[in-house]
Computed example of a mutant assay.
Amino acid sequence: MTRKKQFLELVKKYQNGTLSAEERRLLDAWYNRYGEESKDELDEAGLAETESLLRGRLPLAPPAKIRRLWPRIAAAASILLILSAGAFLIIQKQAKPVIIAQHDIAPGHNRATLTLAGGKQIALTKKSNGTLAVQGATTIIAGGGAVTYTIVDKENMVSYNTLSTARGEASPFPLVLADGTKVWLNAQSKLTFPTVFNGKERIVELTGEAYFEVKHNAAQPFKVKTANQTVEDLGTAFNVSAYIDEKATLTTLVEGSVKVNNKVLKPGQQTDGEKITEVNTSQYLAWKNGDFDFENNDIRTIMRQLGRWYEMDVDYQGTISTDGFSSLISRQHNISSVLKLLERTGGVHFKITGRRVTVSQ
């Protein structure tokens, strides 16, 4: 079956109510990448890109009350499907959403700040290269797609450094700690760590969000401390979200095993420190891969994520919908494009003024 025929089959399944969760996410991804205009054309390469993007994602059971960020294809009278020799088209016959925008807001940047023990700050960007600093027997080198702490001699004195990102920033590449552990930072986050691990434990402290690929050493456990959790590595890749404006600190395990507040997680599980749940891990790693992945998130949760990346403030007017929104959206779009997708549901409206967005129903 050609990809064009496959997409037609998906549309038919949607109309018949037999579309699976994974198939629905495939349509979501297509529409959000190619359906922002009222008439859009998707060639075979575009279809292949979308299919590749979704391959390997875990399907979720569809929630009871959810707003999809593409038009309701079931309303067949408002959709015209056309197959031509070289393209698959969907023409949506409806009014486009109107976002009142005095200014637009560009997406955030891949940059971070490294603060050394003496207070010196080093700006990190994708262009950073070469030796950044020497602290005792530890050399900090940028290159090869990472910032690496390299121990050139035995070091007894421990000093502490901090990697931080502001709103509108995410680390341009992983930080490689002295033990070989790799760390990526999301927006508005801070990681404090020693330049060398000499004690019985390897301990770092986190606020905000980070993804860890830990170099396992059973004789010297690696621990991430947040305000509400202590995460202990048992040979692991995991994500920790510990923003102070969120209701809970969430640890999501991708590979291996971790212990969180004496609870052991398996891959595909998440804990808030109290209960353990099965989750789609790709949703919680989307930020690292340059995307927003919303799965039945309410608008306030979504706007907190957008606020961190777009460095914007958010106001609410009147009663705001508590419906869930689901979509996969690139973090490289201007904010108006993201808000336009949200407005297509008909359940929410936005006004952009400077770096402030007002949300209404």
Rank of each mutant, 00 (worst) to 15 (best):
K5W: 02
G144S: 10
L80I: 05
G56R: 09
D272S: 03
A210Q: 09
P194I: 05
K266W: 00
G235C: 12
W309L: 07
L328E: 11
Q94D: 15
D40K: 08
L285W: 00
G118T: 04
V176E: 13
F88W: 11
A76T: 15
D43M: 01
N239G: 09
G268Q: 04
F212H: 04
P172W: 06
L26A: 08
A248W: 01
E169T: 08
L47C: 03
E274P: 00
I299H: 07
A117L: 08
E295V: 07
I99M: 06
L10N: 12
E37K: 12
L339C: 01
Q305G: 04
T150W: 05
I73K: 02
V152W: 00
W70M: 07
A75E: 15
A187I: 01
P267T: 12
F222D: 04
T181R: 01
A45C: 02
D28M: 09
Q92C: 10
H109N: 12
G136C: 01
K340Y: 09
L206I: 04
L234D: 09
R72G: 10
D323P: 00
I276R: 00
L58W: 04
D291E: 10
L27H: 10
L132P: 01
Q135T: 12
R308I: 01
D315M: 11
I105K: 03
R300L: 09
